[in-house]
Every structure is written in C-alpha cells, then in structure tokens.
C-alpha cells in the first residue's frame, strides 16, 4: 500500500524542476529590485528588499512555473559578529522554500537594520509563516508588520531582550529567582572577534535586583 497517488491531487504532478538560475531569472524579470547572490560557500539565494517581500512571495507561490507551495523554514540571524565583507550589523531573515509540485528549492533573504528591524509578514501567503515569524520576533527581535498575532512564543511575555541577538545579556533573575545557583559563576560564551560596533538594539529595561543568593551573575 504505497504511494498510490490520491485522485485529484495536483501535488503529485510530474516534476518540472527549475534550477536556481532559472528561478532567479524569472523572479528578477518581474521584480528588478531583487538580486541573485550567493553565500560565502557558494549557496545561491535571492536578496529581496524588505518592502517587496510580500509581492515576491506571492509571485513565488502563484507563478505556474515556480509554485513554491511550502515554506519549509523561516529563520534569521544576527550579522553583527559575522566576518562579512563589508562588516554589517544587520539582521537577516531567511525564507527556505520548497515546491512540492516541481520539487525545487529556493532560499530568499531579507536584510534589515537592527535598530529598525521590520519586515512585512508573509503569513498571508503561507499560513505556517505565522508561527515562524512569531519565533523570529521572539528570539531575534525582527518585527513583522501586519502580523495577525505578533507575540512572544517561546519566552514568557515579560521577558526582556531577544536572546539570539549577539549582544544579548543573560538575565540575572526571573520572577525574583536568581538565574544562577549559589556559587555558580557565569562563563560568557566564547566571543568571536567583533566585526562591527553594534549599537544595542533596545535599552535593557531595569530588572528586579537579584536576591542575595544571586551568585556572581555577570552579563557577557
């Protein structure tokens, strides 16, 4: 009882796979602001200006030859300590698309400055983006404009800071309970050499003073 294609499902359509250059060409023809780039180890991607992302996403999903019907992953990272040329302190949001109809992939990236990290939401294009974007907002602090429910998803609502930013300061206490054990010292993670002077994203709000047993909590 294997792989009998269910009737009427066009998801099993015979593959008509496009390679990355062809996909890029097609997208750039419709949206000239999009640039085809490749990462330091030669992984191709499309760099899209933030304002264009919804239109590009809709095209990627709806164009008959592209048909990127699934958003396999949406994530982001902080470039501020990445040895990029030229150095930058931006945040990257990356969309990993896959087409079940044609069985091809695409990586789309958006780069936003960390002080005004805002990208329009694509949750209207792929429903699953709703969750992914909440996660990126929570952990990286990229705001998704017009998102239906942009709330923290992993950390508690009153958490301070966005942990996956490279300048994140570990909490000293939460809910009045110290983060570290008595006598435990905090060892800051091994810091790679900083590339660009990154201004702190959000001024850290005052925390309740740690209780006496707080140990020597020190922010990295």
């Amino acid at each position: 009882m294997t792989s009998a294609a269910p009737a009427g499902s066009e998801l099993q359509a015979p593959s008509s796979k496009l390679d990355n250059a062809a996909i890029a060409e097609r997208v750039i023809a419709a949206h000239p602001t999009v640039a085809a780039r490749s990462s330091d180890n030669g992984q191709p991607y499309l760099l899209v200006p933030p304002a264009e992302i919804v239109r590009v996403a809709t095209l990627l999903r709806d164009d008959a030859a592209l048909r990127f019907d699934s958003l396999m992953d949406l994530t982001g990272w902080d470039l501020s300590k990445y040895p990029a040329t030229p150095p930058s302190s931006d945040l990257v949001v990356a969309y990993f698309l896959h087409s079940l109809a044609h069985r091809h992939h695409l990586t789309v990236k958006v780069q936003v400055p960390r002080e005004a990290a805002e990208v329009p939401t694509v949750s209207g294009v792929w429903a699953v983006a709703n969750y992914f974007e909440r996660e990126v907002w929570d952990l990286l602090g990229v705001r998704f404009a017009e998102h239906p429910n942009l709330k923290r998803i992993m950390t508690p609502d009153d958490w301070i800071g966005h942990p996956l930013r490279k300048d994140y300061a570990y909490p000293q206490s939460y809910n009045g309970v110290a983060h570290l054990r008595e006598g435990q010292r905090f060892e800051p993670p091994p810091a790679p050499k900083p590339a660009a002077a990154a201004p702190p994203a959000a001024p850290p709000a005052p925390r309740p003073p740690p209780p006496a047993s707080g140990g020597g909590a020190a922010a990295p």
Binding site: T155, P163, P171, V177, H179, L180, R181, Q184, P189
Partner: peptide, 10 residues
C-alpha cells in the same frame, strides 16, 4: 546550566 538563558538551574 551553563549557556541557557531560560532554564531554571535547579
């Protein structure tokens, strides 16, 4: 306990 920001240490 060492690198996590969200785990209660005990």
């Amino acid at each position: 306990s060492k690198y996590s920001y969200s785990v209660l240490n005990g």
